[in-house]
Amino acid sequence: MDFVRPIEAIVPGAQGRVLAVLAETTAELNLRTIAQLAGISQAQASRLLPDLVGLGVVERREVPPASLFRLVPEHVASRALLTLARSTDTVLDELGRLAGALPHPPVSVIVFGSFARREAVADSDIDVVVVRPAQVDEDDNAWSASLEAWRRDVRRLTGNPVEVLEVSADEAATGLAGRTQVWTDIRRDGRVVNGLGLDELRAVRSA
């Protein structure tokens, strides 16, 4: 999934660009502004907008000499578009929920990399740190199977490959205190979706 341009990924072309612009604001926009933000010509916008108004997805208000347009949020199609526009946040929430439902929930689940930076496109990996519970051994088959099932669920949720960095709480604390590139990235971009926060994980090492 292209999470940078999720609406355009599903609705390709100029129409998707126009809908993406309108989904990003509750303000009324004139035709020129919509065309500029969508990166299309005013002629293209003037051909597309009447059709969207006719479908009821967009409403038009005349303010002579201009016409103002906005998405109709109550429309069933608009609801789907707005859900797409919020897809990154939806995925982050769902990752945390799925992790919390594991038989042995992780100590912490941290998303980092391009997805955490909101830069993930269709071929981007979703990079995740999973901090293993203290009572679970590294070679515990049941834990490994449940974590692999979680990874598959996330892949099905997003369509993107999922790369899991599995560590113990002590390893996470050591990494967060160190200077390796991957842990520097995690400190800078990491989004905790379940369990202990980064500061709490750092404290594990000194506890």
Rank of each mutant, 00 (worst) to 15 (best):
A9C: 06
P12H: 05
P12W: 08
G16K: 05
V18F: 12
A20K: 11
E24G: 15
E24F: 00
T25P: 07
T26L: 14
A27M: 08
A27G: 03
N30L: 00
I34M: 03
I34N: 07
A38P: 06
S46E: 07
R47L: 15
A66K: 12
R70C: 06
L71H: 02
P73S: 09
A80T: 08
D89L: 03
D89K: 11
V91F: 00
L95Y: 07
G96L: 10
R97C: 06
L98K: 15
A101R: 15
L102G: 03
L102N: 00
V107D: 08
S108Y: 07
G113I: 03
R117I: 06
R118Q: 13
R118N: 09
E119T: 04
A120V: 03
A120Q: 05
D123N: 00
S124Y: 03
A134T: 14
N141A: 05
A145S: 08
D153S: 06
V164K: 13
D170S: 05
A173Y: 13
T174D: 13
G175F: 07
A177I: 02
G178L: 09
R179P: 01
T184N: 04
D189T: 09
G190T: 01
V193K: 14
L198C: 10
L198F: 07
R202V: 06
A203P: 04
R205F: 12
S206P: 02
A207C: 14
A207Y: 01
